[in-house]
Design a protein around this nucleic acid. Structure first.
Lengths: 333, 333
DNA sequence: GTGAAAGCGCTAACAC
DNA sequence: GTGTTAGCGCTTTCAC
């Protein structure tokens, strides 16, 4: 920068003013500086700007994974909003490992961003209270977070209840829940969705057969496939499957096709997330739409609010729950 | 840091030495400093470290999109490798817009990373020559890049030829190429894969009916679906479809199911990318495996080499082409 | 084994 | 409209 200044015959300050489009530079000088910048191929040093001015121009999105369609689609929505605000979105993935989640929020790494949107799967509220956050953060996801943070959630329980109610209404009585939990004391995604499943059963006066609650290790298509195969081999009858994610539901559909089970004739299937792929499966997957658009908008509004006031995080903490609805396609009656 | 130093009764330098695990600090002092750091909840300021030391600890991966499975899966592979090297991977998406691609490489934004892996779709070699890259970069993808850069490519032509050869060998004579180009003078992904398709036809002495070359706007499932519907409505007969990406192939399969076309009986289908989802489609999608693992390994090796020598980029530029192979599943005979 | 001084490249605040 | 001064928080260098 100092080179540009010398070459253009002005001070570094004037160059800075030109670069940042600040007023109070004569058109003449501005043009000369711009020409010199182009000439020398000068680029600002963002590290120096960051150190001095405190802002980086980036918003971080920290998510467990990107192979699944859910976070990838959320990222695309958020990116658009962030760019509209003159910033850019940067993603980090933790692979749902506690170690990497901790790394992402430690060593001052969050300070690399002007604001952060974060979905943590392993770390709990207590872990978070250990860390000092200097950056505005909005949490997403089901894990509880300390009271001081903004938090946007989808209605896991309500969405699951909607799906299960529909299955019960259409005559299903033995609904497998793929990815469910036997013990739903924790507030993570599988537990909450299983809770909705149980609530719908309770309201309908139908008892849950615990053998229909199938725990899985991950929510990949492969997991869904294997869980369905196991369930079938166990000989436990079922006339519907509520699958906790669309990705897993894809595996369930594939397994049912292999097993010669007709969908939705012999067994109905409902997924969760309403990803863009649901419309292209054979048969098309009915799914819980967790309010993806509203979610992205709410997250950005909250982050705006936090980022507006530079230092003080005076604004009251907000927890928002986005409404879910059911989208029926071909895997349900 | 100065606070920690004062509190621990040492100099800032010693604190720095402790944080960076440098030798030459007595065990006694080290422990005292670490305790003080924990006490005060101190975190390094990465902006300051970056400014002074030049390194950020991050590797950037800049890709067109993340909704499709391809880049998401590549990112996961690369992340593992990068973490093994004590760094972390950070993603940016450009949405395949020229403007955003330019932004990502301008304003010194690449300097935020110790190394960058980049897939550009819009910018061409001439655009890239304008920009001064201060950061080690490895390019991926099919677009030509200036001779000075390392470049890892998949064998688009060869992979497409393999797929088409197989279809021809199994008796197909009217192979639609969904996403193909009529004019393959440019070296982008659709053109290269179409070139392989044409080569296979030429070798087999089968003429290409240009009405079977279906251009699409994007490679989403929706595009594949619509292209197939259009082709069917046009009344042009086909007995196979080579679809340029798996995501689009998913839409093709869905369309064929809607149209009552039996796969692979009435029409065979082959995709490209061999994503993890291919195994869970109904029917399972045969696909070109572009060497995803080898690709990730090669990229990381090249980046290592560039990042090893801090300033001088003395090492000769390398262009690598990874081999493709065909994975047959249920959509082919 | 530890510390003091200097400076990375930028910008906020204020002087002219 | 433009320049000067100071300092963001680290690490490199060299002295002790």
């Amino acid at each position: 920068m100092i080179d540009v200044a010398r070459e253009a015959g002005v001070s570094a300050m004037t160059v800075s003013n030109v670069i940042n489009g600040r007023p109070g530079v004569s058109a003449d000088t501005r043009l000369r500086v711009l020409a010199t910048i182009a000439d020398l191929g000068y680029q600002v040093n963002l590290a120096a700007r960051h150190l001095r001015a405190g802002r980086t121009g980036a918003v971080g999105l920290i998510v467990p994974d990107l192979d699944g369609p859910y976070y990838a689609q959320l990222a695309t929505r958020l990116a658009r909003g962030v760019e509209r605000r003159g910033l850019h979105l940067v993603l980090e993935r933790t692979g749902a490992s506690a170690e990497r989640e901790l790394e992402a929020i430690s060593f001052g790494r969050l300070r690399m961003y002007d604001g952060v949107i974060m979905s943590l799967l392993r770390l709990d509220s207590a872990d978070l209270e250990q860390v000092r956050f200097e950056t505005p953060v909005v949490f997403i996801g089901e894990r509880p977070v300390p009271e001081t943070f903004d938090h946007v959630m989808m209605d896991n329980v309500g969405g699951a209840r909607l799906a299960t109610e529909h299955l019960l209404t259409t005559g299903a009585r033995r609904i497998a829940v793929i990815g469910g939990k036997h013990d739903d004391h924790v507030d993570d995604m599988p537990s909450l969705r299983t809770r909705g499943y149980r609530q719908a059963h309770a309201e309908a006066g139908v008892e849950v057969d615990e053998r229909l609650v199938i725990e899985v290790e991950s929510f990949s298509s492969r997991s869904g496939y294997e869980a369905t195969t196991r369930l079938h081999e166990s000989g436990v009858a079922f006339d519907a499957a509520f699958v906790l994610t669309d990705a897993a539901a894809m595996g369930v559909l594939r397994a049912l096709a292999d097993l010669g089970v007709d969908v939705p004739g012999d067994a109905q299937v409902v997924g969760f997330d309403n990803g863009t792929e649901t419309d292209f499966l054979v048969p098309r997957l009915s799914s819980v739409e967790p309010g993806n658009e509203a979610m992205a908008d709410t997250i950005l509004d909250l982050l705006d609010r936090r980022m507006a006031v530079p230092g003080a995080d005076g604004a009251a903490q907000v927890t928002t729950m986005v409404n879910a609805r059911l989208v029926l396609r071909e895997t349900t009656r």
